[in-house]
Write a protein that binds this DNA or RNA. Structure first.
Lengths: 125, 125
DNA sequence: TAATCTGTATATAATTATTATATACAGATA
DNA sequence: TATCTGTATATAATAATTATATACAGATTA
């Protein structure tokens, strides 16, 4: 596994770790049930406290990307797409409701709104 | 003018002042070019430092809701429709950013996302 | 013109939130 | 038993936020 800490980035260390591992899980670079480096091992590699790597792993677990087996290690969680969908769809629907409302109050047309979404989607690629 | 500070609200004082005055300007309760209470006078009424009321007024001015005349006072800015539109656009952009992110993490395709937005738009009619 | 309004500028105190850490602990494994 | 694994609690260091006092400068008015 590959994690690089950029001390000049301004982003906190735990967050850099969290973001990079998350990206690797989403991209499939890290497979389901694959074991992650131990929080101590990774900390040693990066020459930081293991509490900091632990914090990154905690975030990953809270968001459902990894699971932990006591005294054994941390593993990439099976991609539970349906569950993630159900949770996120609600949030997405609520947000869409809001932007449609906002668009209406400032005379932004539906077409323009769609264009904005398409633009944001392209930015993400 | 009417401003109430709720010490239990958790929100900072300057923010409570900012929010309440902003709401009164948007609702039209405060008319264009109407003079606001002086930062010192309001501070005295609320029994807080005038630096705190000043901060609230600074925010209001920065967002274009009021304007200041040196040594005279602060006044409600003429309603700028463009300004409100820009405010809403920012919120819309932030929301779109979020839904795109959410969609990505649960493998919801761009096409599907667009469909959801279109659906919500039709519902609004 | 002097007193007293208005807002401004600079420095600072107090508080809270964030970030990173050490140390002591408990289960699993070889 | 030695040594991995993760956990829990307490704490240090830093940074951001919030609120303030004091000294200043222009405008108004009695």
């Amino acid at each position: 596994m590959n994690v690089l800490i950029d001390n000049l980035s301004g982003a906190p260390i735990y967050d850099q770790i969290f973001t990079q591992i998350k990206a690797q899980i989403i991209s499939g670079e890290l497979k389901e049930n694959e074991m992650l480096p131990s929080i101590r091992g990774l900390a040693k590699d990066l020459r930081i406290s293991f509490i900091t790597t632990k914090r990154a792993y905690e975030e990953l677990e809270r968001e459902g990307f990894i699971y932990t087996v006591q005294a054994k290690g941390c593993y990439v969680a099976p991609k539970n797409v349906e569950l993630l969908r159900e949770e996120n769809l609600k949030k997405i629907e609520a947000n869409i409701e809001e932007i449609v409302q906002l668009a209406a109050t400032c005379n932004l047309s539906g077409t323009e709104l769609i264009e904005m979404v398409k633009f944001a989607l392209e930015e993400k690629l």
